[in-house]
Simulated scan of single mutants.
Amino acid sequence: MNSEKKEQDEYVELDEETLFLVSQTFKALSDPTRIRILNLLFSREYSVNEIADSLNLGQSTVSHQLRFLKNLRLVKYRREGTTLYYSYDDDHVMNMLKLTIDHSSHS
């Protein structure tokens, strides 16, 4: 076994902040509404009203979920006039979500 492979396999204790962030990310991905929102944001950016209309959800529900996702830096927004447009902000998590969706779609 080469030393590079051995270094990769060595156990490294996670610090409390990392543990918290990882658990919060999985918490975000454990909610069906948040998964639906993130899945929608794969295609393009959307306003809160567009997300609500596309997913047949209430605007307050969408806003609440977006706030949760934004606090974890999973989504970001840009302002155009009085409208906020949301898009995803973390390729790693989106790739993980896509892989999980693909995995779940296997028959």
Rank of each mutant, 00 (worst) to 15 (best):
T33M: 15
E80H: 05
S23H: 07
L40W: 12
L19Q: 14
Y88W: 12
L29Q: 08
I51H: 11
E17C: 02
H106S: 11
Q8Y: 08
S60M: 07
Q59I: 07
V62F: 05
K98M: 08
F68T: 07
S104H: 13
K6L: 14
K6E: 15
K76T: 07
E10Q: 12
R44F: 04
D15S: 09
K5Y: 08
V62Q: 08
Y86A: 04
E7Y: 04
E80N: 06
H106T: 09
V75Y: 12
D90E: 10
V93T: 11
Y85G: 07
T25C: 08
S47R: 05
T18C: 07
G58P: 04
S30F: 01
Q24P: 00
L55Y: 12
Y46M: 10
I101C: 01
F20T: 03
S107F: 12
L19K: 13
R67M: 04
I35T: 01
E45A: 04
E16K: 11
L69Q: 06
D102K: 05
S63N: 10
I101Y: 00
R79T: 03
R73G: 11
E13C: 08
S54W: 06
S87D: 13
I35C: 03
R34S: 05
E10G: 00
T82G: 07
M96A: 14
S47P: 10
G58Y: 09
L14K: 14
R67H: 07
S23M: 09
L66M: 05
M96S: 13
L29H: 04
K27H: 10
V93F: 03
S23K: 07
E10H: 08
G81V: 01
L14G: 05
L66Y: 03
Y77M: 03
M96C: 09
H64Y: 14
E50C: 06
H106N: 09
N95M: 12
H64E: 15
I37Q: 03
G81N: 09
D102C: 02
E17Y: 09
A28Q: 08
L99K: 12
Q65L: 00
